[in-house]
Amino acid sequence: RNRTTFNSSQLQALERVFERTHYPDAFVREDLARRVNLTEARVQVWFQNRRAKFRR
């Protein structure tokens, strides 16, 4: 699988949700994935990586 590149509008939407919660539930992830046209799995991994970055 190739690395996913996120465009600025996708990142903006992802970061907005991250500000609200670092652990979005499945419903939030599904909705977000639909809105930014990504798979739920990509959204889930983005949050895992974003939390790791946040802890650094």
Rank of each mutant, 00 (worst) to 15 (best):
W46I: 01
N2E: 13
R42A: 15
D25Q: 08
V28G: 03
R3I: 14
A26D: 07
H22Y: 04
E40T: 08
L11P: 00
F47L: 02
A52D: 14
A33T: 01
V36L: 15
F27S: 14
R56L: 10
A13Y: 04
R56G: 13
A41C: 12
E19L: 06
K53F: 14
R29S: 06
F27M: 15
R1Y: 14
Y23D: 06
D31K: 06
A52W: 02
R35N: 12
T4R: 08
L14G: 01
V36Q: 08
T21M: 07
R34W: 04
R1E: 09
R20T: 15
E30G: 12
T5P: 14
R3L: 11
F47H: 06
A33V: 06
Q44Y: 09
F54A: 11
T39K: 02
R35V: 08
F6G: 00
R34P: 01
V43I: 14
W46M: 06
F27E: 15
R55Q: 15
L11I: 13
F47T: 02
A13Q: 08
Q48W: 04
F6M: 13
A13V: 08
T21V: 06
R29L: 13
A26G: 07
L32A: 02
F27R: 14
Q48H: 10
D25S: 11
R56C: 09
V36R: 01
L14F: 03
V36C: 14
F47K: 10
E15L: 07
R3M: 14
F27L: 12
R20L: 11
S8E: 15
S8T: 13
E40P: 09
A26C: 09
L11E: 12
N37S: 04
T4K: 10
Q10Y: 04
T21S: 05
F47G: 03
Q44A: 12
A33I: 13
T39D: 13
Q12T: 14
L38H: 06
R55P: 02
E15V: 00
W46R: 01
N2K: 11
A33S: 07
K53Q: 14
D25K: 04
N37M: 08
F54E: 15
R29W: 00
V45K: 12
Q10P: 02
R16G: 11
S9F: 10
N37P: 00
S8L: 09
Q44H: 05
F47V: 00
E15C: 01
R16C: 13
V43G: 03
V17D: 02
E15R: 01
R42S: 14
D31L: 04
E15T: 00
T21H: 05
R34E: 09
F47C: 01
E40N: 02
F54I: 15
Q12L: 11
E40V: 12
N7H: 05
Q48T: 08
R1V: 13
Q48C: 00
E15A: 02
N37I: 10
T4Q: 11
S8W: 07
R35C: 05
E30Q: 12
